[in-house]
Write a protein that binds this DNA or RNA. Structure first.
Lengths: 174, 174
DNA sequence: TACAACATGTAACCGGTTACATGATTGG
DNA sequence: CCAATCATGTAACCGGTTACATGTTGTA
């Protein structure tokens, strides 16, 4: 159900857009929260149109269909955000790796964590660059909160990996 | 592929176990990193047995099959941990919600965040209780790192929600 | 003897990925 | 004219969830 919510959200903020536009928007904006390929987006838009959550207001060249969110669609989005309590269960490859660390030799686990910390560090720098680029920019709106959250989470992973590596090395060095 | 990795990890640390045992172990240990139902676990164990990653050493009453990890299985786990670089893409309902916040009125967004902070706070207390119960306990091993990471992540969400609510309220109150 | 817990499986379905397939328009 | 990009779709497959289905053992 979350895919359609994401699409309704994008349509709310971007205004009318085609499936093609939305596919690119997915990649450029919502990417660190959710992902979807065009092969999933197109059929979903058709389903939503059939259910009246979006409408095709105009058809352009190359078969382009421009979708607009309807009142029903906006209501659906709002209801999901406010009334549906967030599901607690989630999958995280990072957490799974954390869980499996003790199956390795301590020096291997520490090395793995150092490498992970390194790569989270790189990612953190990328995200901070994006924020820096946007801050001197117009509307403080879209993706702002999600980006802030993403930066915090990435920083956390980076610090956790570093500290845990140190902890493992510390308790081994005796 | 991660399901089989998780199963191999559990078999490594728990020793030989049945599908039934593993299903319960999933719930009680690895739960905040990954989830799986018995309907997924049983077929996967059969597949892994066919591929030689685990073996059925003994069959007990009620058709109970006790699986043991093989050297091939241990190698598979180790290789995955060390050689496969973590996939960066992940889905997070929490992050999606963050992204969608600006589609709400500021006062609604702030209220939503307060409620989320509240529920993350409850969850945080639960996790800390688990850690406290385990700390005065035996082996500092299993689930330790994953639990620590889970606590940090939950605390982060709690703080982020609280601070973001305050930020939104602050910028509105003019 | 009845109920809870043990124990394993299958089938239908849903969401997501990869790959296949097609064609129109624009710019160099 | 050719290539890149715009633009939409379908089919096969995979991982995961829900529900269905069945039978055994221990214990109150």
């Amino acid at each position: 159900m979350s895919l359609r919510i994401a699409l309704l959200g994008l349509l709310t903020v971007s205004g009318p857009a085609s499936g093609y536009d939305l596919t690119k928007l997915f990649e450029s904006s919502i990417n660190n929260a959710w992902q979807a390929r065009h092969s999933q987006i197109y059929p979903e838009l058709n389903k939503m149109a059939a259910e009246g959550l979006v409408t095709v207001e105009e058809e352009g060249p190359r078969g382009r269909k421009t979708y607009t969110i309807t009142e029903d669609g906006a209501r659906e989005l709002r209801t999901w955000l406010i009334e549906k309590e967030p599901s607690r269960s989630h999958r995280s490859e990072g957490a799974l790796r954390a869980f499996l660390l003790p199956t390795l030799e301590p020096h291997e686990a520490a090395a793995l964590l150092r490498a992970e910390a390194e790569s989270y560090g790189v990612r953190l720098a990328e995200l901070e660059a994006i924020r820096a680029a946007k801050s001197s920019w117009k509307e403080p709106g879209f993706g702002h909160y999600a980006l802030d959250l993403g930066i915090r989470q990435t920083r956390l992973m980076c610090e956790w990996a570093e500290e845990t590596a140190a902890e493992i090395e510390g308790s081994t060095r005796s």
